[in-house]
């Protein structure tokens, strides 16, 4: 249960950062927190008490008490996707700073409704 609390705590903190902070780097950290929380949540969905890793590294392991491998595969994909998003976000932050001389999204208002 504590894993769930930790995972959703991370997600909530990330969302709070995104809603309140206006510095782009801090917002990117917020996105990263959300993604980490999601990964932790997915892993804990597949967790089994006293379970082993789903790898038959030595003979005699009982497949019945292995943890669910599918969330782990999903997390592998999710990690790669969040790395990709982060890389793009950092590149954009570099360019934004070059154009505007600031990373404060509250001050960058060239476009509005």
């Amino acid at each position: 249960m504590v894993y769930y609390i930790g995972a959703f705590g991370l997600i909530i903190i990330g969302l709070y950062v995104l809603m309140v902070k206006r510095n782009l780097i801090k917002m990117i950290i917020g996105i990263s927190l959300i993604n980490t929380g999601l990964n932790l949540f997915l892993i804990s969905v597949g967790f089994i008490k006293l379970g082993t890793a789903p790898i038959f590294s030595k003979p005699g392991l009982n497949p019945k008490i292995m943890v669910d491998p599918l969330p782990q595969a999903m997390v592998l994909t999710a990690i790669v996707i969040s790395v990709a998003t982060l890389a793009m976000a950092l590149a954009l932050a570099i360019r934004l700073y070059e154009h505007h001389g600031t990373l404060d999204m509250g001050k960058i208002k060239d476009q509005k409704w």
């Binding site: 959300i34 998003t85 976000a89 954009l92 934004l96 060239d110 476009q111």
Partner: peptide, 22 residues
């Protein structure tokens, strides 16, 4: 200038969206 700013906004909202999806 314009396109970088729009892309940043799109990226932040889009990644929150994909977080909710996941």
């Amino acid at each position: 200038k314009r396109s970088i700013e729009s892309s940043v906004k799109y990226l932040i909202q889009g990644s929150v969206g994909s977080g909710f999806m996941l």
